[in-house]
Write a protein that binds this DNA or RNA. Structure first.
Length: 416
RNA sequence: GCGGGCAUAGCUCAGUUGGUUAGAGCGCCAGAUUGUGGCCCUGGAGGCCGUGAGUUCGAUUCUCUCUGCCCGCCCCA
């Protein structure tokens, strides 16, 4: 017995409709916002993520699925979707075509982590990227799109937004943070001491009580935004309000990927344990240049499909049930089953959802099976029917039967 | 990477203070007039009681190891 690898999950045939519903809804919303799908490889050169996601991030330093291929190239399974989309945007010269370039993807992603509720090693994201637009209205549109999707899926979420500024204001803020934390260094946890050196921004979202107490009075990034970033953030807030989107400003939101600038946001569900962030994103104006393209602003977000499904499940969101067969054709003996097969083939050519017996079951058992499938009608073919060229069609809901000629069946079921 | 919990039928779980054939419910298959579903009834299939070792006359039960799963931290979607 070979088991499924740690941190992965099968989507079983009986559950696939849930995924299809979420993915289908995401595609629908994407269409409303004029996004086209992009599909990029599941693996890329390792360097893409090192530069794109950030050399010092947890994702790159300890969570990537990296291996050498037979040509001795370092290859990495994508740990997120943005880097690949940006690589493709640059490589295909999309900067010279119509802007903005608005696209979405539904992709698996891989991170070597300790599996937990809503956190798998292979997980799936619906992601959106908009390239070329620098105004906050575009950030707001991305948020609006995420909000539309989450609401359409029936989720109750809270939106938190923040601005982490541009490299200029962040430098000033980092300096201020260091000045603030320096006298408290001894009181910080071990992790925070290294954060102090490497990435002071991250000091803000430490969960340790001692650190929380200290950073409660830390200066806010919002006080250090440069005039341009501040104006951008003001415009974002204005747009969100005008789109009637509720939000809360949380100056502690900092993202774990290096590429974010200015707007960052998270949609958090309260009905799921620790992994409550169901969708998150922000602006990344420096990333395209970082990856070798001409400077170009961009904004995007990603939603974790597994997390969406968990929340929907826990809150009892009803997902439309999969389609059921219009008709099940039961055959009493071998000859009748042959006729059933022939009729099924003909009806399917007319686009009808038809099922027949594959297990050589009794008529009774075939009825039970048809009932389990939820078939709306069962057409029974026995010796008499075969001789008369008609099937005995029973409506499963009402229990009523009537005779229908084989030749008329396609028309009979067409609108049932 | 750190901490806690749990591994018995396809699923959800009982159980054995260590003792011959390990149980229930659900699900699956079949039967109840060999031409007709749902409800009820009856029967059946299906478990080396997660792995390896130890203690013991004897381990599914006690001890340890490993593995896996779940939950939390970290991090993130």
């Amino acid at each position: 017995m070979i088991n499924i690898p740690k941190g992965t999950k099968d989507v079983l045939p009986s559950d696939a409709y849930k995924w299809q519903y979420v993915e289908g809804t995401a595609r629908e919303i994407a269409k409303l916002f004029n996004l086209k799908e992009i599909r990029t490889p599941v693996f890329e050169h390792t360097e893409l993520f090192q530069r794109g996601v950030g050399d010092t991030t947890d994702i790159v330093t300890k969570e990537m699925y990296t291996f050498k291929d037979k040509g001795d190239r370092s290859i990495t399974l994508k740990p997120e979707g943005t880097a690949g989309a940006v690589r493709s945007f640059i490589e295909n010269g999309m900067a010279s075509s119509v802007l903005p370039a608005k696209m979405y993807y539904i992709t698996p992603a891989f991170r070597y982590e300790r599996p937990q509720a809503g956190r798998l090693r292979e997980f799936h994201q619906f992601g959106v990227e908009i390239f070329g637009a620098k105004g906050a209205q575009t950030d707001a549109e991305a948020i609006l799109m995420a909000d539309t999707l989450l609401k359409k899926l029936g989720l109750n979420v809270k939106l938190y937004v923040n601005s982490i500024g541009c490299p200029t204001c962040r430098a000033a803020y980092n300096k201020a943070l260091k000045e603030f934390f320096a006298p408290h260094l001894d009181g910080l946890c071990y992790d925070c001491k290294t954060r102090f050196e490497k990435n002071p921004l991250r000091l803000l979202d430490c969960k340790e009580d001692a650190c929380k107490k200290i950073n409660a009075s830390a200066p806010s990034i919002l006080q250090y935004l440069c005039p341009e970033c501040e104006a951008h953030f003001e415009e974002l807030k204005y747009c969100l309000t005008s789109a009637r989107i509720d939000y809360e400003i949380d100056p502690r939101i900092v993202r774990g990927l290096d590429y974010y600038t200015r707007s960052v946001f998270e949609f958090v569900s309260t009905s799921i344990g620790a992994q409550g962030t169901v969708c998150a994103g922000g602006r990344y104006d420096g990333l395209i240049e970082e990856l070798g393209g001409n400077p170009m602003p961009a904004v995007g977000f990603a939603a974790g499909i597994e997390r969406l499904l968990i929340v929907m499940d826990q809150t009892g969101v009803e997902i439309p049930a999969p389609a059921v067969p219009t008709v099940y054709i039961a055959g009493m003996d071998a000859d009748c089953r042959k006729k059933a097969f022939e009729l099924a083939a003909a009806l399917r050519k007319n686009g009808l959802f038809v099922e027949i017996d594959h297990m050589e079951r009794s008529v009774k058992a075939q009825f039970k099976y048809a009932d389990k499938l939820g078939a709306k009608y069962v057409a029974v073919i026995g010796g008499n029917e075969l001789a008369e060229g008609k099937a005995n069609v029973k409506c499963m809901a009402t229990g009523e039967s009537e005779s229908v000629a084989f030749a008329d069946m396609a028309a009979y079921f067409q609108h049932k």
